[in-house]
């Protein structure tokens, strides 16, 4: 696989289940080292970085995980604030669990996803769609340059899904980038500039969104190559 995502690009990754979308994102955020070849993220190779240098790089990459990976027993505010753990000191992180720090920013991020009224609720009392929006709010607070999103809108209605993708594309509009695995062809075409199709771990499609139709992509999902 050879794939380069440039500044200000919004790239949708499509493919059937098991095609390698999640693995691609995991390699991109440094969670999984590539079994062969090399990866360069924001000009650096996460595989060779250690300690604080690695943390600084990772703080510049935001991820919305497929399973969200929020902590159920924590209140929403802490799960959102967790987005800033890359820049906070250990002491500040600990104190924030007692007195939530930077509440206005948290509320701002939650307002953008329409959840401000749930800021102090326990996260495990929220519905699947609400949790997905909490994960997006965490990412907004992290304010990364590169956004990696794995099915970020799978549990949302079309209106909210569009809104969330706009938010995720924010960094891309400021010379950042968005790499999102999506299973809704319409969403991919509407919110991304470029579509990359994967099959069995290989790139089988790489084209500007403008050149594709929903039907092209639907065929893609329907029958794995």
């Amino acid at each position: 696989m050879d794939l380069t995502v440039g500044p200000a690009e919004r790239v949708a990754v499509v493919g059937a289940s098991g095609a390698g979308k999640s693995t691609l994102l995991a390699v991109a955020n440094g969670a999984v080292p590539p079994s062969s070849g090399s990866v360069e993220v924001l000009g650096q190779d996460p595989a060779v970085l250690r300690g604080p240098a690695l943390r600084r790089l990772r703080a510049r990459v935001g991820t919305v995980h497929q399973h969200l990976e929020l902590v159920g027993p924590l209140r929403v505010v802490h799960n959102v604030n967790a987005g800033r753990l890359g820049s906070w000191s250990a002491a500040r992180a600990a104190w924030s669990l007692v007195r939530p720090q930077g509440l206005p920013e948290v509320l701002g991020a939650l307002e953008r996803v329409g959840l401000a009224d749930r800021v102090f609720d326990r996260t495990d009392t929220l519905s699947g769609g609400q949790r997905q929006r909490v994960a997006v709010a965490r990412l907004l607070l992290q304010d990364p340059e590169l956004v990696l999103a794995d099915e970020p809108a799978s549990a949302l209605d079309p209106v909210l899904a569009g809104r969330v993708l706009e938010l995720l594309a924010g960094p891309a509009s400021r010379d950042g980038a968005l790499l999102a695995a999506l299973h809704d062809p319409a969403l991919a075409l509407r919110h991304c500039d470029r579509v990359v199709g994967l099959s069995a771990g290989r790139v089988v499609l790489d084209a500007p969104a403008a050149a594709l139709t929903v039907a092209d992509l639907a065929a893609f999902y329907g029958a794995p190559a």
Partner: peptide
């Protein structure tokens, strides 16, 4: 996984512990 996710966004080990593990194990 939450702890891994926190590590992925650049949290220190202590932060990952406080926000990812402790809240789950405390109960």
């Amino acid at each position: 996984r939450p702890r891994t996710a926190l590590a992925a966004l650049g949290a220190r080990p202590s932060g990952g512990w406080l926000y990812g593990v402790a809240p789950q194990a405390a109960g």
